[in-house]
Design a protein around this nucleic acid. Structure first.
Lengths: 359, 359
DNA sequence: TTAAGCCCTTTAATCGTTTCGCATAATCCC
DNA sequence: GGGATTATGCGAAACGATTAAAGGGCTTAA
């Protein structure tokens, strides 16, 4: 006897194992109609007597609504897709952490896909999420243009970008004031007497480019020279690039006195190169990094870094996405114009990796 | 006109936006019955002519099967739940990376929940996954007993543990040979002339306990003393515990010449404490860590560590889970007896953090 | 007294699939 | 040629919920 067809729910001979109770079982148990039960379950008003009946039956049969079935008719899955460029990257995982927390509170599930920095894979992943009928997508993109998100647009699924924004800014997103932050970091160096300041930066995504612009802003304002050899901004913002770029800088006859690293991967690569070459910081060269404090805590010399508001990235991203989902439900369609772009601010953590040349 | 009710699928006036094509649209387009179309879509045999008709219609209408609806009748979601104790922990995220890769290949989605080392939260998370009707659960548990997984058992959802196993070994799982690995690491130290060897280890989960046993095995075999002050095994295996425990060790008049750290968090805490106290390794004290190479790469002195097969954890876990899911479908029930316990082996990475006292 | 209004209930349609049972056509063997 | 055996195809009933629309008691007011 199958559960839900009049028999006692629970053990089921045919399937050989326990079937969860369905709303039909509640119907049998209470003698009420499906509609009334459904109404109550969704917060509607029913007679006190029926309320008790239903509650008793729910408890007795351990009933819980089947989200799948509900999703079929309400056309929602209460699941959000999150696409990240690399789940093992601390930056992503910290944001994921907060996203999970926020969405958990709201009763949403989180479907995470990892594109390993490969835009093609990212595109497939997004399509996968669309097929899974997620209610919305949060994306810390690997790709540099919105092409990868095409399938989401087609399906009219709300998308919010985190950290990186595409050139045309045609999407909702949460970023930080990268340009100002980088300029601030450079000014910090300048204030401490540095004039020969190098930069190591990726060239591909908006984040790296903005940070590089910030470097240039500050250098130009201070009328400092930016010789080609000091400007390493032709690679991908990875540990590997940071490592080789730093090695190049160390080969120079006229070495810079300080170097700005524009993301966590580069920080890591730079520290590795310095250690390997037995060059100490801040004695021989000063270093300012970006992103997070991990290195500051674990290294003998705490790294001075522009600290990102990881938690807020996640929190704000969820907030915007939820707003969009609500809008879509109400207006029965996606609001095409008026993109939201939240810009969070950063904080300069003063470690011990910058030498004050004035004193 | 709603999609799927005879009109042209696509734009839908009522809803105000584009609706995806359904199998009913294919029916209208081809004149075939739902059953035939479904059969073909699921790899069944149909007449060549019909095959072409369906293919053409699918292409024309951009049809893709609605997994939600399918799930309702097949009673599967093609989604696996993964519960981790901390998504920002490198150990977890590397395993997650591989899990995502493997499950992606199989067309499965990954619903990730993060319990922040809180068993109570973990229990809720598991229940959440069960409600989401995942086909199976992979768990890198925070809790120390199987109580948290109760709701999964009740719902007869296959579960595979990764890294940590419960006392009764009553579940399928993938672990490493923790005891032997730890003993190996200690022997490595002994071979290099160390006699005063301390250990810092958690006391709560199977992993820490096994590693501690390995330490004891090796020390006993070599007939070396294990004074109470050298044995720090009363805390939780975290960075904080590693940090304070190392500080304790440094206070001793008769300091150990080497210390074994039994996981990544402890490695980190120990390195922090040493840096802070200006104690250098391997000159002043030798260190052997556990888990992964991150610290080995970034620190000036590469840490010698017992390296874990992160990737294989994920790969093997998925493999076992898929086998269980298959079995459940075939036998229409969960196989109660005969638990699978795969034990992977580790590898000792020789960095520069161990001093050879013989030479 | 009766129509209107309110509150709650029920009946039945629907969501987009799969699948069971049966009908039909084609193939084969003797 | 006829009955058995294979292929395919079809209609309809699930799966477990939500939700219009209609109905049935009440109270209230003209």
């Amino acid at each position: 006897m199958k559960s839900g067809t009049g028999g006692v729910p629970g053990f089921c001979k045919e399937k050989g194992y326990r079937m969860p109770a369905t709303i039909k079982d509640i119907k049998e148990e209470t003698g009420l109609s499906l509609a009334t039960i459904s109404k109550y379950l969704n917060g509607g008003n029913v007679l006190p007597r029926n309320k008790e009946l239903i509650e008793a039956a729910v408890k007795k049969l351990h009933y819980e609504v089947n989200e799948i079935a509900r999703g079929l008719v309400t056309n929602s899955t209460r699941t959000i897709g999150v696409s990240v460029f690399d789940i093992t990257d601390m930056f992503c995982s910290m944001i994921l952490h907060r996203i999970g927390l926020e969405l958990g509170k709201l009763g949403y599930g989180v479907l995470i896909v990892d594109s390993s920095e490969d835009p093609e894979r990212e595109r497939n992943n997004i399509r996968f999420l669309v097929n899974k009928k997620v209610d919305g997508i949060l994306c810390i993109p690997a790709a540099t243009n919105s092409y990868v998100l095409k399938s989401a647009f087609d399906a009219e699924i709300p998308v919010v970008l985190i950290d990186r924004q595409f050139r045309d800014r045609s999407l909702d997103g949460v970023t930080v004031n990268n340009r100002e932050a980088a300029a601030g970091a450079v000014n910090y160096l300048i204030n401490r007497g540095h004039k020969k300041i190098a930069v190591i930066s990726g060239s591909e995504e908006s984040t790296s480019r903005e940070r590089f612009r910030g470097y240039r802003d500050a250098m130009e304002d201070a009328e400092l020279a930016m010789p080609k050899e000091y400007v390493m901004n032709t690679g991908t913002a990875t540990t590997k690039y940071g490592y080789t770029a730093m090695q190049e800088l160390l080969k120079l006859d006229d070495r810079p006195t300080a170097v700005l690293c524009t993301n966590y991967g580069i920080n890591l690569g730079v520290v590795m190169a310095l250690n390997e070459a037995q060059v100490s910081y801040p004695e021989d060269i000063s270093v300012v990094g970006f992103d997070n404090l991990l290195l500051s805590n674990v290294l003998k010399t705490r790294l001075t870094v522009v600290e990102q508001p990881m938690e807020r990235f996640g929190q704000k991203g969820v907030e915007i996405l939820m707003q969009r989902i609500r809008e879509k439900k109400e207006k029965k369609g996606i609001n095409e114009e008026g993109h939201i772009n939240v810009i969070l601010s950063t904080h300069l953590f003063e470690g011990d990796s910058v030498r004050d040349l004035n004193s």
